[in-house]
């Protein structure tokens, strides 16, 4: 029995020491809750630490679960920065009062376009949600739009992922903002009629479906094609990606739908000053270059060149800067409803 007591005792001591290590306070640190999972982000934080001596701690996870944890931790939360990959999510979290002002410091206001920041959060990188097509079978006119994809002439030739996907919700939210709910509902029905298959897989799977001839048209974010072209997914996918052409829609009107990866400083951030420093660092040319070369997103600041795999698609397309990205969050629930009712 003495042995047993000894084991229990030792374990408790062990547990507390792990606890202390886990909770030990580094004076100079900044804590990030990130719904972006890129390893390259972690490398970037290491660069930041090397430069400033500020230690960066990260918890990554599912978007909503992280938000829940931040909310429940309340003023005891150690999280300083919340990073996610959709403007709608940032807007919604802001609406819940979880951010404090200060993300867009004076320095950042100078470089980040007004549509991609608010006092509560700031965009770190941009992505466009575009159309992909098979050049062997179809050829879009220069002014083709998202709206056109619902045209009955494309029956059975369109692929896009499920309505539960947040990028789709933001895209449809922007359509609602521009065309109204009624028109968008009709559009969603038209889209569903044109589906080549039941929505399945991620954005890359949609592009691959066009490459494989399952469909002529796909909707997906820009960086997925670049990821395949980079060879990081193997030679076969690289070859497949070359069979597909990207197309930037709505050039005749408001421009192509843009979304951001962005971050805000949390209401109870214990290390606000460091958080501001980190956000400013993420928007330096050096950090931006690192981001665009690893995630194939578009840079947020002028003077940084997109990765050449992205740049070859053309960089002078018209971006939709009219539809405020901050609107996405407010309309996402409606967008989901519209899509669900259409059977998406």
């Amino acid at each position: 029995m003495k042995k047993l007591i000894k084991i229990i005792g030792l374990t408790i001591v062990g547990l507390f020491s792990t606890l202390l290590v886990a909770n030990s306070v580094f004076a100079n640190e900044v804590n990030i809750f990130s719904a972006r999972h890129y390893d390259s982000d972690v490398q970037l934080y290491e660069k930041f630490t090397a430069k400033t001596g500020i230690k960066v701690n990260v918890v990554s996870g599912k978007d909503k679960a992280l938000q829940k944890r931040i909310k429940e931790e309340g003023k005891d939360s150690k999280a300083d920065i919340y990073i996610t990959a959709d403007a709608g999510r940032l807007g919604a979290f802001q609406a819940e009062g979880m951010f404090q002002k200060g993300a867009s410091s004076a320095a950042l206001k100078k470089v980040v376009p007004a549509n991609f920041r608010s006092p509560y959060w700031v965009g770190i990188a941009k992505r466009a949600r575009i159309i992909y097509y098979n050049p062997k079978t179809v050829n879009p006119s220069w002014n083709m739009s998202y709206e056109d994809l619902a045209d009955p002439k494309y029956k059975g030739r369109v692929v896009i992922r499920k309505s539960s996907n947040i990028y789709n919700q933001s895209l449809v939210a922007s359509l609602i903002k521009n065309n109204g709910e009624k028109k968008t509902a009709a559009w969603a029905k038209g889209m569903v009629n044109n589906f080549a298959r039941k929505p399945t897989g991620n954005d890359r799977a949609q592009i691959l479906a066009v490459a494989a001839g399952e469909a002529d048209w796909a909707v997906a974010n820009t960086y997925y094609l670049a990821l395949m072209l980079s060879g990081k997914k193997g030679a076969e996918q690289q070859a497949a990606a070359k069979k597909v052409m990207p197309f930037f829609p709505n050039q005749d009107g408001r421009g192509t739908h843009m979304n951001i990866s962005g971050s805000g400083i949390l209401k109870h951030a214990p290390n606000k000053a460091n958080a501001v420093k980190l956000l400013e660092f993420l928007l330096t040319p050096e950090a931006q270059q690192h981001i665009v070369n690893n995630t194939f997103e578009y840079p947020m600041i002028p003077g940084v060149e997109a990765n050449k795999l992205i740049a070859q698609f053309g960089l002078d397309f018209k971006q939709d800067l009219k539809t405020k990205v901050s609107n996405y969050g407010k309309l996402q629930a409606k967008a989901l409803k519209v899509m669900n009712e259409a059977g998406w």
Binding site: L15, T18, L19, A22, N23, V59, R69, E72, E73, G74, K75, D76, K78
Partner: peptide
Amino acid sequence: NSFKNVFIGSVVGLV
């Protein structure tokens, strides 16, 4: 005192 940090986001909480 709040003890949230002892249990949320710690090995103790996980266990």
